[in-house]
């Protein structure tokens, strides 16, 4: 019988989000992002998480994550 993991309740881009992974890189992949992709940045609780640290960064219940992408602008 498989165990059901309790999801991690986050604020992701300003909305409630239940994550079934506690690893930032895995979460990004689940959002359809490629880790080597340029033009993306992540902040965790108001602090930038450098790309080089995505795969080792843990996410916890109550975290506020922002995932931003470079788009057209004036």
């Amino acid at each position: 019988m498989s165990q059901t993991k309790t999801p991690i309740r986050l604020r992701l881009n300003g909305a409630d989000y239940d994550s079934d992974t506690g690893n930032l890189a895995e979460l990004l992949i689940r959002q359809g992002l490629k880790l080597e992709q340029k033009g993306i940045a992540v902040a965790q609780n108001g602090k930038i998480v450098a790309k080089t640290r995505w795969s080792e960064t843990l996410i916890r219940s109550g975290d506020e994550l922002e995932i931003l992408v470079a788009i057209q602008g004036g």
């Binding site: 940045a41 470079a70 788009i71 004036g74």
Partner: peptide, 10 residues
Amino acid sequence: VTASLRRISL
């Protein structure tokens, strides 16, 4: 060229 940063669409 200029660019802006926006939250990704989930």
